[in-house]
Amino acid sequence: MDEFVKGKLITEWQLPELIDTFADEAIDQESFQLLDEATIAALVPRVGLRLKFKKKFREFVTNSAVLTAARAPLTEDPHNSAVNEETVNSLRLVFEVIPVFDIRPIMAATSDGRAILTNLGHTGQLLTKERRCLVRILVSHLIETFIETPSTNTKIALANSLIQTFPCLRDSSDTGRNSWFAKGRKAMPSTGFLEERLRNIRKHTTHTCTHTHTNVRLNCVAGRLLYYNEINLTKCIV
């Protein structure tokens, strides 16, 4: 067993359950650093463990890249040293790991997703109902992995993975994916089925939180419990 991988899985990440699998597949330090979405899904089929591993692995890749940039030699020219430091700091701020989504396993994890896979295999087409279901499944996976605010590049990666897996879902745009996700330009917001679903979920979440926190406020003042809402103020003596 590679000591680097063993140290990561047992000592740092607390995932000893994966040791035997990684040893059987001869995953050493070099191959560990080359793991992609599909390989991780094959190595860690159990969803709970896979989510934990992917979270740790993304942090590892990000930190490794930033550390490499930080260790790069700076020029001795005093006029350029500030520029180099600014470059390193920028890398720390904007470096992002762009994931690769394995669409088939994501879909196969649900009964509706399996039905869609079967239909696509037979007809190469999606009904409106099936397309909405497909979007719900993919966005649910996106939120589980990246919460409710995945980056634009992450959403582009998901849309690209979808049309690469199922070329029949490409549209007539230059990218072939604009109906699924199109990046906003200038003052125009992003569009597409994936973005619309995410936007609706965020609106629902925001509305729920706003309703909870603004319409009902409790405050105990001088032994009196005051109930506030937007229309009435009622006092109830405790």
Rank of each mutant, 00 (worst) to 15 (best):
I231A: 12
L158A: 02
A41P: 05
H141N: 14
A82V: 11
I143S: 04
F95T: 14
N84T: 06
G7N: 03
A42R: 15
T152P: 09
A70T: 09
D2N: 02
T152F: 09
S179R: 11
E96W: 10
A41L: 08
G121W: 05
L198P: 06
A26W: 05
C133K: 15
D24M: 05
A159M: 02
E195T: 01
F166R: 05
F60R: 03
G124F: 05
R131M: 10
P45L: 08
D2R: 00
V216I: 09
R132I: 01
T110R: 12
N200A: 15
N119H: 14
E30I: 10
L9M: 00
C236W: 06
R71K: 15
K52R: 15
V83Q: 15
T206Y: 07
S172H: 09
F53R: 03
L35W: 03
L43C: 02
T123H: 08
F166T: 02
Y227R: 00
Q14S: 03
L91I: 14
N232K: 11
I19K: 01
D2P: 01
R114H: 13
C209A: 13
I116M: 06
N89T: 10
E230L: 12
I147Y: 15
R185N: 14
T165G: 07
G176F: 07
R131E: 13
V5I: 03
R185E: 11
N219A: 08
E96N: 09
